[in-house]
Write a protein that binds this DNA or RNA. Sequence first.
DNA 1: GGGCAATTCC
DNA 2: CGTAT
DNA 3: GCCC
Length: 399
Amino acid sequence: MDDIAKSVPVIDIQWIRDWKKLRSSDSDHDDFVPSLPPVMATSAISSSSGAEILNRRFKDLPPEELQFDDEIARRREAEANVDIAPGFINSKYECLRPTPYEPKYNRKLVSLLLLLERKRHLDNEPKRSLSYRHAISAIKAYPREIQSSKEAEKIIGVGKKMAEKIKVFLHTGTIEEADKLRYDEQFRTLSLFSKVFGVGVTTARLWWDMGYRTLQEVLASAKLTAAVQLGIELFPDFDQSRGKTKNGDVDLIISSKRPDNMKGFLNKLTRRLIEKNYLKHKLWNSTEIKKISHLERPSAGARQVFDSFEKPSTGIRRQVDLICVQPDELGTAILGWTGSKQFERSIRDYAKKEKNLLLNSQAMHLEQNGKRKKYVVHSEKDAFDMIGIPYLEPELRNC
DNA sequence: GGGCAATTCC
DNA sequence: CGTAT
DNA sequence: GCCC
């Protein structure tokens, strides 16, 4: 999952309606797929812009833009010891407060902290990266401009070192370490490499250390697994910096009230979708076998990742995750796949630490004196109620 | 100083 | 089987 | 890097 809670509809919903119509009139899997006009498959899609990104070399390129930056970095009165903003839910649990996708206040500060978080991530310092994520999340949700580092340090998640950086920001309008990263070839190259499907910070750095500076060079010279090679070739289609929509991947969670019908469903469905050219490549798949007291139950979160045509007529390609779940897993599956990533970490952390509830995308369990009791979660709302926290719309889970 | 979400695949 | 993703 |  990405760090953005997905709320933008990016596929033709009619496609799903047709599917539902057909499904209700017939129980044979092979007829689940609606008949739509066949797709004109072409490999020339976006290849002109694709060549650009594959050959992008950051040396001497203009600096990376800040994510949010309409703020005039004005100088504040030094170190006003004001109270924390009224109404702000000051907690270490991000899931307790609404967090917008774009901050209203402190936008440049958030942009700079995001650079530092990414730097820690690329340097393989996941815990420091997490710390920045906590602080960024809190500041994104903070309901007014921060006036001083003293005020900032009252925010749970902002400690001494972060407050010092904020102090410098308030006085100079920037944070030097962060601003430098915008021009840093290694930082920008590692960022690009690690956006490829199947590539994390380790592989990204390996490629850098081998001397590669563009994806094209990697493609030409590095020995790649088939999946990673596909990841690079599809990269131009998935490139998120292009186009208007923030993020384009689609998660479809599929369930049936008659689980016995679901055996082999995902494979059948994807085979048909590939035949009809809705899906192009299988990037990844997982078929989980749950072991329950010696019995093997095929289940929970069988998942396949594809790239597909968003809308046959446009030829625009999207990443599609197909997730097949048991009916009693539907509530937790939707909650778990809606994100954001940090929201999921937070709500699971809260549930466990504060309520002894173990939460994952398959189930919720109450743990008391060494025993686990399973609760069925029927909906997202249900999950919030059971955990005992106020419901948050998906659009406000952008922790 | 321990913990930081939970889980799978290759 | 341990590590990376 | 921060909280408990």
